[in-house]
Design a protein around this nucleic acid. Structure first.
Length: 254
DNA sequence: AAAAAGCACAACCGCCGCTAA
DNA sequence: ATTAGCGGCGGTTGTGCTTTT
């Protein structure tokens, strides 16, 4: 296993663990600068760093990579996390792709500390909201079906466009559609969604973010298309008043 | 002032899928 | 067709700092 590594000498004693030192960070950064991301298992051989490839990758992705945002999650980012978690569950890396500068680890940690405990409480609110959400969902489902029929032709054309941003948007759109079209998948998401909404009802539902946000991704496609040439951002939100705009940091576009 | 609880963050572990040999 | 190695992902743990009691 570790002793083979394909090409190179590997310390049999085992890898260093624990917090990274500034010297180690420097070595790793220099390695990536020279060789680019990837081939993590060769970092040890090339730099003399006594760290496993996994450890190196993790350190780079979560800490050293340029463009990472430091500091608190903003309310906008929080909203996005909530929406996407309701949609996809614990797909942290997927969610992270829509939050430029944030890592899956960061989002995961944030969710755990801020929302995990809420799942155990507020059951009464949930029941109340559940009814409202299901009602809204029904309406949206009907609208969705109508739109789908109308857009059948257009969608076929869209399928051909699959470069960078468009491709990602389309992926998100398809997932959203899946969530509507296949009850089992959505049922997996809903329990979490109910809890979130119960906690965030004023912020999300009443302001129209939840229902005017991801659920209207279709509306966002045009907006994104105009943005993509500027190599900027992916924008969530819908309606006229609730638009999240995440500007790419360090050249990250998904 | 001290202990306990909570929070934020970093890092490790184990599993899984992909790929090259 | 098989298999070992690698990278990626989600879950979990450890640690230090801050807030509360």
């Amino acid at each position: 296993m570790v002793a083979m590594m394909g090409w190179g000498v590997v310390p049999e004693q085992g890898w260093r663990k624990g917090p990274w030192t500034p010297e180690e960070d420097k070595l790793l950064s220099e390695y990536v600068k020279l060789h680019g991301e990837g081939r993590w298992s060769s970092v040890a051989r090339c730099t003399g760093l006594n760290r496993s490839g996994k450890s190196c990758r993790l350190r780079w992705v979560n800490y050293l990579r340029p463009g990472l945002k430091r500091g608190q999650i903003t309310p906008q980012e929080e909203g996005i996390i909530i929406e996407l978690h309701a949609l996809w569950g614990n797909k942290w890396s997927t969610i992270a792709r829509y939050l430029p500068g944030r890592t899956d680890n960061e989002i995961k940690n944030y969710w755990r500390t801020h929302f995990k405990k809420r799942e155990r409480s507020s059951n009464q609110k949930q029941e109340k909201r559940k009814a409202q959400i299901l009602d809204k969902k029904l309406q949206l489902q009907q609208q969705q079906e109508q739109q789908q029929q109308q857009q059948m032709g257009d969608d076929q054309e869209m399928k051909g466009v699959n470069n960078t941003v468009d491709g990602k948007i389309h992926e998100a759109q398809e997932k959203q559609e899946m969530a509507f079209m296949y009850p089992t998948m959505e049922d997996q998401c809903l329990p979490v969604m109910y809890q979130d909404v119960a906690s965030w009802e004023d912020f999300m539902v009443d302001d129209g973010i939840l229902w005017g946000g991801l659920w209207n991704l279709d509306d966002q496609i045009d907006h994104i298309s105009t943005k993509q040439n500027q190599a900027t951002a992916y924008s969530f939100g819908g309606g006229s008043t609730n638009t999240y705009t995440s500007t790419t940091a360090g050249g990250y576009i998904f």
